[in-house]
């Protein structure tokens, strides 16, 4: 690109066109997610597929848009440890409630759905 020479020394990250390409890829993934959820019957595979696709989007944004890939590894460690802890607490809370009949009253109103 013409502006190549004007780059700062500490410049890191990608070029504008590459960011736009990533944006297109993210859009495509979102459309695929939508299709998998609304129009295609994946059965039991749906939830894992959605999780994987979302994780790809999540990873692309934090590593490329937020420059984690080009930055000091300290940031990655801090963020991923916090994310892992948050996820662990979320899973622990949900399983504590969902697994225990004395906590959640059996639902009376619902027959099927």
């Amino acid at each position: 690109m013409a502006s190549e020479a004007e780059h700062h020394d500490e410049q890191h990250g990608l070029q504008p066109m590459q960011y736009i390409q990533i944006g297109i890829v993210l859009t495509i993934i979102t459309v695929v997610e939508l299709a998998a959820s609304l129009w295609v019957d994946l059965g039991d595979a749906l939830i894992p597929v959605l999780f994987v696709l979302s994780a790809v989007k999540f990873g692309a944004v934090i590593s490329l848009f937020m420059h984690l890939r080009f930055d000091n590894i300290v940031f990655t460690h801090i963020f991923l440890v916090s994310l892992a802890l948050g996820t662990a607490v979320l899973i622990a809370l949900i399983s504590l409630f969902w697994s225990d009949v004395t906590v959640i009253e059996p639902v009376t109103g619902i027959v099927g759905g």
Partner: peptide, 9 residues
């Protein structure tokens, strides 16, 4: 980054 880690929780 530390603040964003907190936001995860």
């Amino acid at each position: 980054w530390i603040f964003l880690g907190s936001e995860c929780l």
